[in-house]
Design a protein around this nucleic acid. Structure first.
Lengths: 239, 239
DNA sequence: TTGACAAAGATTGTTAACAATCGTGAACTT
DNA sequence: AAGTTCACGATTGTTAACAATCTTTGTCAA
């Protein structure tokens, strides 16, 4: 009956210091990234209070932060709902990513630092393992996190923060508009992008990433929007 | 003794709905953009309460939002201080802008819509007028807002939001590291960028914007950081 | 004079009770 | 049976008092 969120997570891209309620934000963020919390799911204060064992104040602060990141919608006097992007927003998200990510990867391929490359290599291994285990939620989350890790590899805090928001939004969009099977990135595209970076081939890296984004976008049915689950169904589905 | 903030403002790039405390956020945001609130200035809850005539709850919500936008630092048990970027952050901000803004303007020059062009033209007129009147705070704010308006001209909500944050941070940086006289953008560079866009010349627009950013960055003394005003000096200076 | 220590004051963090709003369902009318 | 109204319960928004923390100031001793 409670949302299933394990407290283990090693590396996250939070910009503020890790206080108590940032942990709540992280958990809900992760649940959204793994598509365990469907768009439009209502997050009532009372339930979150008992789920996390904290007072209402902490929950409200967390909700405000999540709202400022576009992860939830805060409706006055009605409560908090997991964000439910529409077609227009989806287009904006992909347009923003097409603007930012290709030059980002290009720059990265020009002068990658070794530790970032190691992290990315490790990430690919994680993806492979998750795919082998058919761990759906892991695959979905890692699929998005690859892109945030690309941003983090630049070492630029602002670029990381931006990408994190865009990737989160993308995750919601894929959950809403995605065809059932290919709800994650195609299998080896991430790996190929990394190889291009390792080979210090900016043109190739940029090109691969560009088409990768297009593939994701093309995998969406922008007209037949999945019916957003309501509260009950979500809870049952995530136990 | 109170912070001087007039309530008039027409167009802002808020992503959330305009509730009550978004107004507080806007006022403080504007004060920072105009460099009337210097970095490191302490914003005590009590003073903000009486300044805006609202309860502590509203103020705290506003402070949390401002903190999530990087405009202020929220220190536990110590209060809120206007953000005080260091050298590393400054470099990150400019690197992020160099990554995003040139392709943004390029894209804009490829297919600008008329209403955006009209808005930008009008903006240049405002800048000219402010310069003629020697209205320092106006000049500073408009100088930054030109760039957020460029982003808004794309019609993309996310790009606008990102640029808004980066421009705000830039304003803080210019206030901290800027040499005294050229604390705003060089006079006619904005105008020339707009002209290139109007001429549908992507290469020229991108190039001009690129060098414009470099000019701003070169106008900074990254070693001799201006001494951040403390609370008292700021209050006296802004009456 | 300088340093450490302690108490007082001021500021922020938290809690719990209260107020306001919204959604639901029963009762009533047509 | 369909629709409307009203009242109740549930949820969110607000306030004020309380607790905890930090800063300042004054005192005392070296």
């Amino acid at each position: 009956m409670s949302i299933n969120l394990q407290p283990n997570s090693q590396d996250e891209t939070t910009i503020s210091s890790d206080t108590d309620e940032d942990l709540i934000v992280e958990r809900i963020y992760k649940a959204v990234m793994e598509q365990r919390l469907a768009p439009n799911t209502k997050l009532s204060e009372a339930r979150l209070c008992e789920t996390f064992g904290v007072g209402r104040m902490r929950v409200r602060r967390a909700l405000l932060l999540l709202s400022s990141q576009g992860i939830i919608d805060l409706q006055s006097n009605r409560g908090a709902y997991v964000a439910c992007p529409d077609k227009a927003e989806a287009n904006d998200v992909f347009a923003a990513r097409m603007l930012i990510e290709p030059p980002l990867v290009r720059q990265l391929a020009q002068d990658p630092n070794e530790v970032s490359l190691a992290l990315l290599t490790n990430h690919i291994a994680l993806e492979d393992a998750a795919r082998k285990d058919n761990a759906r939620t892991e695959i979905i989350r890692l699929s998005g996190e690859f892109h945030t890790k690309l941003a983090k590899a630049t070492g630029n805090k602002f670029i990381s923060k931006m990408m994190r928001e865009l990737v989160t939004r993308t995750s919601l969009i894929v959950g809403l508009f995605g065809s059932s099977e290919n709800s994650s990135c195609p299998d080896d595209e991430h790996s190929n992008i990394l190889k291009a970076i390792q080979a210090r081939d900016p043109d190739q890296a940029e090109k691969l990433l560009s088409s990768h984004l297009k593939h994701i976008q093309n995998g969406l049915d922008m007209d037949v929007r999945q019916q957003p689950q309501d509260d009950l169904a979500t809870i049952l589905g995530s136990v």
